[in-house]
Design a protein around this nucleic acid. Structure first.
Lengths: 112, 112
DNA sequence: TTTGGTACCTAGGTAAACTATATACTTATC
DNA sequence: GATAAGTATATAGTTTACCTAGGTACCAAA
């Protein structure tokens, strides 16, 4: 995550974020980090130590599949991750949970 | 948290939620849980084992003050929590962090 | 051949929320 | 007045998730 922002906000949402990014097509690890930075103007900036265990966890859970492939532009091989059907369903659930959660947060204030 | 919703969503947001509820006036522990339930139609339902350590943490950090007081309607004494000035500033910061975070989440999807 | 860049991986630490249980006091119930 | 039930606060111990701080491997350029 980013510099002086509450570092706890990410907790519980990393999986959701990764699935969201992978929804539009396969991508490899470091590319996901770059995409997250680009799409949020640098707001999301995960560390590799957060990313890779999360990708493994999601793969283990059957939400992603992965495949090593050589790079055509040179450089070391890359591990591409793709959303499975189960992953798409899980993403839909997470998206709906997120909406409920954020609307509950909004309801909290000035609800008297 | 609630039944079949992602239990991780709460992480990192409990402090924010507690400060938000206490913004409108002092309240005691179990009353905060009830208020959270009422305001969100049962969506937020913390356990005491989450609440009290959090209240102590916030008090330790100077964001809340607490005072024991007898109940006028009978029942055991209650510990009332009040937002300090520092707590109000922290709440404003958390609110702004939350807005940034949730808009970053929204930016993620379909940003290509 | 050595340096730097890219890419993936993991062990260990920390922090936050949950489970389960304990304590204390008050109000009903018998 | 003893016992049970309800209200309220508290905490020890577990789990989980992210981060820090490394490490390995390969490729390209100097």
């Amino acid at each position: 995550m980013n510099q002086n922002l509450d570092p706890n906000l990410l907790k519980g949402n990393l999986d959701f974020i990764l699935l969201t990014i992978l929804e539009e097509g396969e991508m490899y690890g470091l590319e996901i980090i770059q995409e997250a930075q680009i799409r949020t103007n640098g707001y999301f900036d995960f560390k590799e130590g957060s990313l890779y265990p999360a990708l493994h966890r999601l793969t283990q859970a059957g939400l992603l599949t992965s495949e090593f492939r050589e790079s055509d532009l040179g450089g070391p091989r890359r591990k591409y991750y793709t959303l499975t059907q189960k992953g798409q369903h899980s993403l839909a659930k997470k998206r709906s949970d997120w909406k409920q959660f954020s609307s509950a947060i909004d309801q909290l204030k000035g609800a008297r």
